[in-house]
Design a protein around this nucleic acid. Structure first.
Length: 436
RNA sequence: GGGCUCGUAGUGAAGAGGCCUAUCACGCCUCCCUGUCACGGAGGAGAUCGCCGGUUCGAAUCCGGUCGGGCCCGCCA
């Protein structure tokens, strides 16, 4: 029976069998300490028998070991317990020296990120590095829980599509048995259609963007958290997103405070209702403060996103901020213009610690208006197989509805306090990286 | 796609015309060490300074090209 590192203290005085990876060797002459890593953490093994130590000669970090020994309470040991009288069995010997060291923090300096990703397979064995993805898994769990608590149904939509549809982002094209298929840039139309059957639906899945962007915010493949709900208003969406962000952050801090502090993370300040500013207000404040005139611009500059987040932290008591009242002239064809002011789109962006993590909007659910917006804004053909199903949904009854897309890696990045989204991505994909 | 910037042992860094036969730390190998936990100590191996060309008596160092990173902008989320 295998005992896990975390359970050693429950077996004091007993002989136990542990299995894991050699994580660290410390040879002190007559006394040798080794750390063994398993899925729960590390266990310290003390070896005095020269013959047992000799079995580890030439064995590199990463060697897979099984060790039998006696669990002993020991104040001087990490975790308060350790293994004595160890009998070592090398299950899988490793004699090649690892390309990077994993028992100390890996360099996350921008210049060294390439090395970090090149040796990702080994680097993730570093406890601090793998914690990034344990935190991400917790965030993902929290998001699922929040959706579930709000009566959403999880869906899985196709990533292979017939046409380039949404407009905006470039899509990847690929050969599909002689036809051209595209990779989904978002589950946008499918999640909207699924409001019909489910009223509330969500998906957490990869999406693909063929934009040749080389920034700290962009990848060609990322994990999109998509939600869509019927019978709501833009204000409802705002509340929902406030709750979603707080649930994510709280779960991460409840479960991983130690790891987050090791990354020098601070718990973000987030009020119950995240403050909202209009796009015009942001331009005005930014222009006044920096002397860089952005008034009248139809989007936010990256520097404005950073600046307004600093502003919100200092003056609004929040490290996240909603941006509202976007120009209707720039909206996607499936967005809905504001009923009272048709110059404004019912769209809302959520900025968190300097980056946009979410875009949400009300969708145009009235068939006739959607058809005309499709023709005018996207120059699209309603008969196109890429658009036709969405229009069918509207034709046969869709309530006012809205939804959002959230970048899981950007959220994780900013919870931990990284500056590059790729640091929060297991195996990042960008314009020049396809491997590992 | 544009601008700026960086490529030096396995990893991280120093060196900015001759002090370089290239320095340091970690890792690796050998030896010493019984409470380490980024253990400590002694010794050793490991780099044609990304690549190609040029300037110069002399290039890791200057110039041009090239390849590969990074950051910002654009595009986008």
């Amino acid at each position: 029976m295998r005992t896990l590192s975390s359970d050693l203290k429950d077996h004091i005085g007993k002989t136990v069998h542990i299995q894991g990876w050699l994580h660290k060797k410390r040879l002190l002459g007559g006394l040798t300490f080794i750390n063994i890593r398993d899925r729960r953490g590390l266990v310290q093994v003390v070896i005095q028998d020269k013959g047992e130590v000799e079995k580890l000669r030439g064995m590199q970090i990463g060697t897979v070991l099984a060790v039998d020994g006696k669990a002993v309470e020991e104040k001087r040991a990490p975790g308060g317990a350790e293994l004595h009288d160890a009998k070592v069995n090398v299950m899988v010997p490793v004699t090649d020296e690892p390309p990077i060291e994993i028992d100390k923090p890996l360099s996350h300096k921008p210049d060294n990120l390439d090395t970090l990703f090149e040796h990702r397979v080994i680097g993730l064995r570093n406890l601090q590095e793998k914690a990034v993805f344990e935190i991400q898994a917790t965030v993902c769990d929290a998001i699922r829980g929040y959706f579930k608590d709000n009566n959403f149904t999880e869906i899985h939509t196709p990533k292979l599509l017939a046409e380039a549809t949404e407009g905006g982002a470039e899509v990847f094209k690929l050969d599909y048995f002689g036809k051209v298929a595209t990779l989904a840039q978002s589950p946008q139309f499918y999640k909207q259609m699924m409001v019909g059957p489910f009223e509330r639906a969500y998906e957490i899945a990869p999406v693909y963007r063929a934009e040749p962007s080389a920034t700290t915010r962009h990848m060609t493949e990322y994990t999109s958290v998509d939600g869509e709900m019927g019978f709501i208003t833009l204000k409802d969406l705002e509340h929902f997103l406030s709750g979603l962000l707080r649930a994510s952050v709280d779960a991460a801090w409840d479960k991983h405070e130690t790891e987050l502090k090791r990354w020098n993370a601070t718990k973000p300040e987030l009020p119950t209702d995240i403050p909202a500013l209009t796009l015009a207000e942001v331009h005005e404040k930014y222009s006044k403060a920096t002397g860089d005139d952005t008034v009248g611009e139809k989007d936010l500059r990256p520097d404005e996103e950073r600046w307004i987040c600093d502003y919100a932290k200092k003056h609004l008591g929040s490290e996240a901020v909603f941006i509202t009242e976007w120009p209707a002239s720039e909206m996607k064809f499936y967005h809905k213009a504001n009923e009272k002011d048709p110059e404004i789109a019912d769209r809302i962006d959520l900025l968190f610690r300097g980056v946009e993590i979410t875009t949400g909007s009300m969708r145009e659910h009235r068939h006739a208006i959607l058809v005309s917006q499709l023709k005018e804004l996207a120059k699209g053909d309603p008969k196109d197989p890429g658009f036709e199903p969405l229009l069918t949904a509207m034709r046969y009854g869709m309530p006012p509805h809205g939804g959002f897309g959230l970048g899981l890696e950007r959220l994780t990045e900013k919870i931990i306090g990284f500056n590059n989204v790729k640091e929060a991505t297991l195996f990042p994909r960008d314009i020049n990286r396809l491997s590992p």
